[in-house]
Write a protein that binds this DNA or RNA. Structure first.
Lengths: 151, 151
DNA sequence: TATTGTTATACTCTATAACTATA
DNA sequence: TATAGTTATAGAGTATAACAATA
């Protein structure tokens, strides 16, 4: 019943999820809504199509998330300057503040992780994790390729 | 824009989630339902209350998950031998087979992770991750304690 | 009285399909 | 004809509250 490396990674995933759930408790924010906010912070004002692509969800899904975020004043829809079919979704100043807070928490959590290990362990972790990410990404790509070819 | 250790862990979490979604595509299985199956495989036949506690969700939630799993013949409700209010939920033979397959996939994925790194990296990863899990767990415990005390 | 599981209700995330307005 | 976003509909996960049967 020894935990494998995979088990350990899954445990960490669960802990992160719990942490996020705790952080958002009592706010209208959820994981999906926050994903939209992170995308906006990274890409700047975006059309809903762009958000849908970035998050790999349907445009319909984005409509609902943006509705919710807009009703709580985290984001604002503004007219697209050249395409009258589209909106530009942008963070409001309240949304910017929320993102700044989240980025700060992110930085602090990262510092906690860094401080939990020795510098050598930290370097080894980064290397090992890079290798694992590369392998997982390759596996995903393969799997998707074989799925597409079956279609 | 260098990825921090935290970013890397989050990337891995996402890759696992994608992998799971791909593995369950086309089946009636979902992450939540599979969590019930894993719990039953680990604990043996359980009351719905026990499942609710193990998964930290409400009993009402378990009712729905067990309904779905039972309708697809992964689990079976049987009368509790001594408590006529309760059911014992158990894996069916089809459910056992599905779990055996999943455990096999789990083992293979773990082998992929192991083979993606050198033995020294693997050892370093395990150590570092253990330290990080310990730190994260401590943080969660603190956070929950302060939340409870505020109540 | 307390506990087990259910019905009732509600909110969120997600998807597909049909539709409107615009390109 | 194609694209951006919405309405309509549906399934899944989750929660609280009220209730039945049983402990």
């Amino acid at each position: 019943m020894t935990a494998t490396l995979l088990d350990k990674f899954l445990t960490i995933s669960n802990l992160f999820q719990e942490d996020m759930a705790r952080a958002f408790a009592g706010t209208p924010l959820t994981e999906a809504r926050v994903a939209v906010l992170w995308t906006l912070a990274a890409q700047g004002p975006s059309t809903q199509q762009a958000l849908a692509e970035a998050l790999s969800v349907t445009p319909r899904n984005i409509s609902g998330l943006v509705d919710a975020l807009e009703s709580h004043d985290y984001v604002q829809r503004t007219a697209h300057p050249t395409d009258r079919r589209a909106f530009l979704v942008a963070l409001t100043s309240a949304g910017e503040k929320a993102m700044a807070r989240m980025q700060e928490e992110h930085t602090q959590l990262n510092a906690e992780l860094r401080d939990a290990v020795t510098p050598e362990q930290h370097r080894a972790l980064e290397e090992g994790i890079d290798a694992i990410i590369a392998r997982l990404t390759a596996l995903m790509t393969e799997a998707q390729a074989s799925k597409v070819s079956k279609k």
